[in-house]
Design a protein around this nucleic acid. Structure first.
Length: 442
RNA sequence: GGCCCCAUCGUCUAACGGUUAGGACGAAUCCUUCUCAAGGAUUAAAUCGGAGUUCGAUUCUCCGUGGGGUCACCA
């Protein structure tokens, strides 16, 4: 690994759960730091006392941990207020900022002493790893506000000071910050801080092509977790939105992402989050799960009454093939999809008859004979499993017509028109139940 | 509206100025099959428009158009 003094940071404000574009910023920032053997700083920007909440900070921490984005440095912006105040005082002393007495905007009529930055009204150019060189004139920004008062710094001031103090070399953040950058560079120059390298990520948009937000279906990391998505899947998916390594590889572990990641290959245009593809990723990662891990995730979505049922663990492959996310298991149980594994089904005799015998007046009689014979064949089977059941029944089924034998067998075992094949059902149900259900119908 | 950014299948995207414009998700069809699911195969599907530059533009330039971001005593 290339050894550098790269320092990146992720600086969310704890005003909501970690969701949408925010965690992509965290992921890219993290990947860049790790790729370059650098430091990843997590800074909670809690200077807005009104909106910042501890529960949201907890959610952010929980989300990052779940995703596997470990940080090297943790800091709360509110811990730096003394430093901010010192900088503010220096700025005023140097004539870069001034105290302005203005009526509060809440209409209360109170006169407040806010601090404005003295705008030199110049053109600011900065380098952006993704966008190239961006130039903007700061004149129409006016003398922008940098603190509510001497003890309450605002975003632009706090960000610049904290990034400077933490030695941040690369600022990876959302594109919605591009227009904030010139202001922050102005402050950097006033306090003698170097300008870091910027990388403004294009936004992730919702289906309506609008900025993703809570109200537009963007889910929080913890919500994906609670729905039974795997962190590897979300990480992989999100990393591939707006970035790709230029190869045809789609599945990347975290380590592979770290080695492959390059800011220069990040897309310039906004992307839309494709939930279908996340499902596909999740399925791919579910396939890789060991049996033990599978149940560790699956069990919480299985109704309690089945947790200790011997039948449950035999359903693993069936479930794996039928879910995109673990919460789908709740759904399957809720609609009674696999009830017949736990309780004897009630069966309508007419359903037993295969379609080609439906019009035969003796169809049901013939069907029962097929069933009975299938049962007799199975009785002699001692080593009961899928393969052996299949091998025992197949010659007979081929002789009489597969549908004639296998369809009624499947219906007798499941009571359903649609189900896994009869060998699989028999293999799972076991000899005793299988034979009982077969003979119960003849 | 001012300023900034962007533009390839429905979506995510690939393509030293020369490709039958490739892949993935999704879709459809077929195969496999006793029905599902899974699996396999195949197909449909895109360079926003107009001028340039060039022997040759998805690719470079300009102009349109469209989309996004941002214009707080939030971050």
């Amino acid at each position: 690994m290339e050894k550098t003094n790269v320092v990146t940071r992720f600086a969310p404000s704890p005003t909501g759960n970690l969701h949408s574009g925010a965690y992509r910023t965290a992921i890219f920032s993290y990947l860049y730091a790790r790729k370059h053997g650098g430091t990843f700083v997590l800074r909670i920007e809690d200077t807005d006392k009104e909106r910042s909440k501890k529960e949201y900070e907890d959610n952010i921490l929980e989300s990052l941990q779940w995703l596997g984005l470990e940080y090297d440095v943790f800091v709360r912006q509110s811990e730096n207020v003394a430093r901010h105040q010192a900088v503010l005082e220096q700025l005023i002393a140097d004539g870069h900022a001034y105290i302005s007495k203005e009526a509060a905007k809440d209409g209360s009529g109170i006169i407040k002493e806010i601090i404005r930055f003295k705008n030199p009204n110049v053109d600011i150019s900065f380098h952006d790893e993704i966008k190239g060189t961006v130039t903007m004139n700061t004149t129409d920004l006016g003398d922008f506000v940098i603190a509510k008062n001497i003890t309450e710094p605002l975003f632009h001031l706090a960000v610049v000071v904290d990034d400077f103090d933490a030695g941040v070399t690369h600022v990876v953040r959302g594109e919605d910050h591009v227009s904030n950058t010139p202001r922050q560079i102005l402050i950097q120059r006033a306090i003698g801080a170097p300008t870091p390298i910027y990388a403004h990520l294009p936004l992730v948009l919702g289906l309506d092509k609008q900025k993703l937000s809570k109200r537009k279906g963007a889910l929080a990391v913890t919500e994906y977790r609670d729905l039974g998505y795997l962190p590897e899947a979300l990480l992989n998916m999100v990393a591939m939105v707006g970035w790709n390594p230029g190869t045809e590889q789609e599945l990347f572990s975290k380590e592979e992402l770290i080695t492959a990641f390059e800011l220069s290959k990040v897309q310039k245009s906004p992307a839309i989050f494709n939930a279908e593809k996340l499902n596909w990723f999740n399925r791919e990662y579910i396939k890789k799960l060991s049996s033990e891990m599978f149940w560790q995730h699956a069990l919480s979505f299985v109704p309690n009454e089945y947790h200790n049922n011997d039948m449950l663990k035999k359903l693993e492959q069936l479930l794996r093939d039928r879910i995109e996310k673990f919460s789908d298991i709740s759904e399957l149980f809720a609609v009674g999809e696999f009830d017949y594994f736990f309780n004897n089904p009630t069966i309508d005799e007419k359903m037993l008859v295969w379609k080609t015998l439906k019009d035969d007046p003796e169809g049901l009689q013939k069907t029962k004979i097929y069933l009975k014979h299938a049962g007799e064949l199975l009785e002699s089977l001692t080593d009961w499993n899928y393969e052996n059941v299949k091998n025992t029944l197949t010659p007979y089924a081929e002789q009489e017509g597969k549908g004639n034998v296998l369809w009624p067998l499947r219906v007798a075992l499941s009571g359903k028109e649609k189900s896994p094949d009869p060998f699989e059902l028999a293999g799972i149900l076991g000899k005793e139940i299988t034979l009982a259900r077969i003979y119960g119908m003849v």
